[in-house]
């Protein structure tokens, strides 16, 4: 099944018949099996699916962190597939933002320095107005001089979000950004991500297995056994949960 594209939107990231195989021979695992998907600009897309369905793998391939076995991936105008290390580094630096489940920040740097790190690495100056907007949105102004160890998990994740946003990348990839947070902190982070899409037109692709988190997105893609099996637009926690349940049963039967 192929995910459809809204006519008004232009693709920020694209996967074209992407296969990802791990290992060889008997031990070979197909983590992705012909995934084709487009992620529209200015939208918040969630990738859902049971554990081991290939969500992280898809995200890694899209972000240029991992190579694909077959098929092509592109981000904006850039074809990711076939880029060398320096090309990939440049891509990550200039076009992509990351939010990981944990360990997002350098312990030696303050929150502010962490936020500005990608820009410093690229040798770019932040746009001061945008920087202020981001800081105010994440609500960290009074914590800027603190080091990660002095921040709570939720605050740390918000710093990570700010870091991803401040460079205004083509697309932000987030892998279970709320996986390690309690529900309140999680909700804060998710709200913040949704707002940055709604108010500032940021493109976000988020991997999650939590229906509540997926409900914050504009669109949900469901993965199972390395294939896209379903899709929801304007999801709610209930519709997501329903879809998940439906998906679970046939797979169970198929086995």
């Amino acid at each position: 099944m192929t995910a459809t594209v809204g006519p008004q939107a232009q693709a920020a990231a694209q996967a074209n018949d992407v296969w990802k195989l791990y290992g060889s021979g008997e031990a070979q695992v197909a983590a992705l099996r012909g995934v084709t998907a487009e992620f529209e600009r200015g939208r918040f897309t969630a990738i859902m699916g049971p554990s081991g369905s290939g969500k992280s793998t898809l995200m890694h391939c899209l972000a240029g962190l991992d190579s694909v076995t077959r098929g092509t991936v592109s981000i904006g105008e850039t074809t990711v597939t076939g880029l060398g290390d320096s090309g990939l580094t440049k891509l990550r630096r200039d076009k992509v933002g990351f939010i990981f489940q944990q360990f997002n920040l350098l312990p030696t740097l303050t929150a502010q320095e962490n936020i500005l790190l990608p820009l410093s690495i690229a040798g770019r100056k932040p746009d001061p107005a945008w920087y202020d907007t981001v800081i105010d949105t994440v609500g960290l102004r009074d914590r800027l001089k603190h080091r990660p160890a002095q921040l709570s998990g939720g605050q740390q994740q918000r710093v990570a979000c700010a870091r991803a946003l401040v460079a205004r990348p083509e697309v932000i990839f987030a892998d279970e950004p709320t996986g390690n947070l309690d529900s309140r902190s999680g909700a804060e982070v998710l709200n913040f991500l949704r707002n940055s899409v709604r108010e500032h037109g940021q493109t976000i692709v988020m991997v999650t297995h939590d229906p509540t988190a997926a409900a914050y997105a504009d669109r949900v893609i469901f993965l199972a056994d390395g294939q896209i099996v379903s899709e929801l637009v304007e999801p709610t926690a209930d519709t997501v949960l329903d879809t998940m349940k439906k998906l679970d049963t046939p797979t169970e039967v198929a086995r």
């Binding site: 440049k90 630096r93 360990f103 997002n104 350098l106």
Partner: peptide, 16 residues
């Protein structure tokens, strides 16, 4: 290792 990975992920070049 993880820190280095993170830095590379957010765009630190090998030479850097």
């Amino acid at each position: 290792t993880r820190e280095l990975g993170l830095l590379r992920a957010i765009g630190l070049r090998r030479a850097q």
